[in-house]
Amino acid sequence: MQRRVVFVVFDGFQLLDLAGPADVFAAATLVARADGYGIEVTASRAGAVTANTGITVAAPTAIGDVTGEIDTLVVVGGLSVAGHLPDPVLTGQIARLSGLARRTASVCNGALLLAEAGLLAGRRATTHWLAAADLARYPQVAVDADRIYQRDGDVWTSAGVTAGIDLALALVADDHGGRLARDVARGLVVYLHRPGGQSQFSAAMRARGTAPDESMRELLAYIDSSPGDDLSVPALARRAGLSERHFARVFAERTGLPPGRYVERSRAEAARRLLETTDHPLDRIARETGIGAPETLFRVFRRLWRVAPGEYRRRFATH
């Protein structure tokens, strides 16, 4: 039998929060067929619901009329979420449907609706980075705004907008394994989902985007392209023509990360790419990326992405 997926929408919702995950579930159904997904859309009232783009979608059933077992409940987000938080009927019905569901998920700031419904109390959750402070106002929620998605038991939350696609791929992988999730990702021409949650943006993207001058951007590009080189603070300071103390201060001010932490993240991401695209043994990957030893590679992966390198490769290798 197909798994029943119910999306909760509302006026002003983010269209991609619905369309992205729905396309993932639909693509998985093409492959899994009888063991795929049946998609339903519901809202406070039955009928047309207008997204933030002005496009309308049909909600055949009012949320109060939805009954029966649900496999996955997905609450979307959007700029209008704040206006819907005071609606006790909507949040009450979300809580009721969650009780009927095997698992509950939110996309983007839809996490605020889950929190308002009391579904995130005592749980770790993520959301769009712009909404992280709003989610943190719920004192019983442990907010981790640096994740693409977060799973805490039977409740899943995701970061902003397109991260809903990563979330849906994670749900498919949880149901059917990594191979089907990879096939779906390739079919939709999106990046493979990362396991266990990871930074919303890579260290390189964050730092390059905030570095205000060309010399710093060039230095960051050098670090990212040369993970096996000597990237110690003394070596980088010499390359930048600064004293070590001044370099460390300037680097942190301009990128938001201490140089050692940036180098570690950059090397870990280089190792992640090699795990995805090569058959190199772990000791070679650790050596070529400047991480050193397989034991260090393991510790870095567990700390940053909460997964062992070998498990990451088994689930997400593309070669």
Rank of each mutant, 00 (worst) to 15 (best):
A101D: 08
S199V: 00
A22V: 01
R239F: 05
E244F: 00
P309E: 06
F25D: 08
D174C: 04
G68D: 05
L304D: 12
T42M: 01
D152V: 06
Q200N: 13
R315C: 00
G196I: 08
A95T: 09
R272Q: 09
G99F: 09
R33H: 10
Y222N: 01
Q2F: 12
I223G: 03
A142R: 15
G153M: 01
L90K: 01
A235Q: 07
L73D: 10
L120M: 08
S98T: 08
E264W: 09
L236I: 04
A270I: 03
A142N: 14
E276H: 00
I165A: 03
Y222D: 11
I55F: 15
F13I: 02
H280Y: 14
A159W: 10
T91F: 01
A82V: 14
G177M: 04
G153Y: 06
I223E: 05
D35C: 07
G110R: 08
V81K: 06
L180K: 06
S106C: 04
H193S: 14
Q2M: 14
V155E: 04
S225W: 07
V250R: 15
L120P: 06
L130S: 15
F247I: 01
G77W: 03
A22C: 04
E276S: 10
V233A: 08
Q140V: 07
T278N: 13
G77D: 10
P86I: 04
T72G: 01
D183N: 11
E295L: 09
E116H: 06
G122P: 08
L85Y: 06
R284N: 11
Y149D: 09
A51H: 01
I285D: 02
E264M: 15
R179L: 12
V300C: 03
R299T: 14
N109P: 11
G177P: 06
T289E: 06
I223V: 15
G64T: 04
Y222I: 00
A136N: 08
P86F: 07
D71F: 11
V24G: 03
A132T: 09
A62L: 12
A34C: 05
A145N: 11
E244W: 00
R194N: 02
V189P: 00
R179H: 12
S158C: 10
R151S: 07
I223F: 02
F10Q: 08
G160H: 09
L18S: 08
L231A: 09
R299A: 15
R103K: 15
V189H: 10
R33S: 05
L97G: 02
